[in-house]
Design a protein around this nucleic acid. Structure first.
Length: 549
RNA sequence: GCACUCGUAGCUCAGUAGGAUAGAGCACCAGAUUCCUAAUCUGGGGGUCACAGGUUCGAUUCCUGUCGAGUGCGCCA
């Protein structure tokens, strides 16, 4: 419909400007939601320079020559905008528009949460979890085949320290005086330590074999990972695959990647300046270094450690190449703000190995918790860490999901616990669900469907235009990986509906049901269309729409 | 110090591939309701879009600088 209007704009222009070369796609035609009109284009201002003419003169030409069966009036406005007004057919055709099914089903891997398996999930993970899940829903809605992935970094020092902390706890509880240090604290360590002791008490002594240690560590890691997955599952966040770093390492992707990078002269053997707090092996071995400074990184980055083992960076390259091997067309990672500086190095390394890789990262900024109007600084040291589990229990799944994705993902956010818990009109979810409930109420009470034409009040026009906008919203949300657009649209859509509803208080002829509780076929279609749009939007957010309050 | 993200109403935040009078919710003020659920609606006050330059028909949006906030800056993961 927009296309045919654009085509007619072009034709109108060509009458006075015969030589003008103009691509229909370049014509911007946007919906208006106020009394200025229904559609607008700025084409006259765009082409003023090229045609060496004033916008208003060009506009006059269009005004004179433009015709379209769905447009009843066009006006010149402001500095050179052309505004269009729909006729009744024009408005009705807005809801005839149907989304075309996506024929080329692409596959996409979305990796999110991927928390270190050394502690329970907390607030910061919550935002990434919801954004990742909602983004997955969105891509699925758009016809993609989505794989939701959770990655477990079960190697490295952190695991040694984790295990040491568990053994320390066991030693303390059972007065065994084993030689282990405490790195991680907290009740969860004690709990895991107890489970480990129950299972492995036979072999826990002064001299635990390496194999036994690995077994204990793996048991403890699985314990934590499963607990985290359970917490997420309780909010309907589920994963298709859980991938362990150790399994990826076995596949040898890294050595292949290394040789590609070496061929491209992007890797050299050498030394980097000694890192801070460098107390471990002081060997002066050369290490493999990736020239990430070629790609705008601050400095080159180590791929191997002094003892020859791969760094986290190296394993991460391998992990992402494994995703490519598994045949995904597109990769998206959800990362916390603490990884901002890490993107350049990983992306440039991946592009260097495989230049056609479609790899994007969505960053989730810090979430502050606000209680009693005071922002609480959450820190492990202060003991003010809030486990995700208890947050969700406190505010409920729907609130958790909604409030974690109604702000743009890459800006800081204050989560006002007191406001969320109010569960009244200040809470947007209730506002949206109330609109849904109203539609169900009408359809439940209706008697017969009658043939009666619509009265095009300004509120109804806006509601039609808003419903039409849904397709643009999901397109833009997935193009930009911004899920908050959906939440905002739903609030907006609900608001348009409530306005129309209330307008009928003053004008009873606008009501859905007449005196005999009959409904017009147009109204019935409008209501079901509204319901399905609301329902689509809410299910992308992972929230159930209500049929009654 | 360097890099990235950001600075919009009293508060929490949208918006900006450069466009008309910069929006919403909350708070505040004034109204609406025999009615399909008042968990709603309508109207009002409230802004130097941090500041200063630049680019042009036009800048909150792009560029540069300044100030302020946050995050990151390991051969940790």
């Amino acid at each position: 419909m927009f296309e045919s209007i654009k085509k007619n704009i072009k034709q109108a222009l060509l009458i006075d400007y015969v030589d003008l070369e103009i691509d229909v796609k370049s014509i911007q035609l946007e919906l208006l939601f106020d009394e200025k009109g229904d559609l607008t284009t700025n084409i006259c201002m765009q082409y003023a320079k090229l045609l060496s003419s004033s916008p208003k003169k060009i506009a006059e030409s269009i005004l004179q020559n433009f015709k379209h069966p769905l447009i009843k009036e066009i006006q010149l406005a402001g500095p050179g905008f052309i505004n269009f007004f729909f006729n009744d057919d024009g408005f009705e055709s807005l809801l005839k528009f149907q989304k075309e099914p996506n024929s080329q089903a692409k596959s996409i891997n979305i990796e999110f949460v991927s928390a270190n398996p050394t502690g329970p999930l907390h607030l910061a993970h919550g935002r990434g979890a919801v954004v990742g899940d909602v983004l997955s829903n969105l891509y699925e809605f758009n016809g993609y085949k989505v794989d939701r992935e959770y990655y477990v970094n079960n190697t490295g020092n952190q695991i040694n320290e984790f295990l040491s902390s568990i053994l320390f706890s066991i030693s303390e509880t059972h007065s065994l005086s084993l030689p282990y240090q405490q790195y991680y604290k907290g009740d969860y360590i004690k709990e895991i330590a107890n489970s480990c002791y129950e299972k492995f008490k036979e072999s826990i002594n002064d001299n635990i074999s390496t194999d036994q240690k690995n077994e204990i560590a793996n048991f403890a890691i699985d314990n934590l990972v499963n607990k985290s997955l359970e917490v997420l599952k309780s909010s309907n966040i589920n994963f298709n695959s859980v991938i362990y770093e150790t399994d990826i390492m076995k596949k040898n992707h890294f050595s292949k990647a290394l040789s590609v990078l070496k061929d491209k002269k992007l890797v050299y053997d050498g030394k980097l300046k000694q890192p801070k707090d460098y107390k471990k092996t002081k060997k002066e071995n050369n290490i493999s270094i990736f020239k990430s400074s070629n790609f705008g990184d601050d400095e080159d980055r180590a791929l191997t450690k002094n003892d020859g083992t791969p760094t986290y960076f190296a394993n991460d390259i391998a992990y992402h190449l494994d995703k490519v091997d598994r045949g995904f067309d597109k990769l998206i990672n959800i990362w916390g703000a603490d990884h901002l500086g890490y993107l350049t190095r990983l992306k440039s390394a991946l592009k260097s190995v495989k230049d056609d890789i479609d790899f994007e990262v969505v960053f989730c900024q810090i979430v502050n918790l606000k209680r009693n109007n005071v922002i609480q600084k959450l820190s492990k040291r202060e003991g003010t860490i809030l486990e995700l589990d208890s947050l969700i229990n406190e505010i409920g799944t729907d609130n958790f999901r909604y409030f974690m994705c109604y702000r743009k993902n890459d800006t800081h956010m204050d989560l006002d616990i007191d406001l969320i818990k109010k569960e009244n009109k200040e809470n947007p979810i209730y506002y949206i669900q109330y609109a849904s409930a109203r539609t169900f109420s009408v359809l439940k009470k209706k008697n017969d469907i009658v043939d009666k034409s619509l009265i095009w009040s300004s509120e109804l026009k806006i509601l039609y235009k808003k419903l039409f906008q849904w397709h643009d919203v999901i397109t833009q949300a997935s193009n930009r990986n911004e899920v908050h657009l959906i939440a905002h649209y739903l609030e907006n859509l609900a608001s348009c509906f409530h306005s129309y509803w209330s307008a009928s208080k003053a004008r009873p002829e606008l009501r859905f049901l007449d005196d005999n509780q009959n409904i017009s076929s147009h109204h019935e279609y409008l209501l079901t269309r509204f319901q399905s749009t609301l329902n689509d939007g809410l299910s992308i957010l992972g929230i159930k729409s209500k049929t009654e309050m």
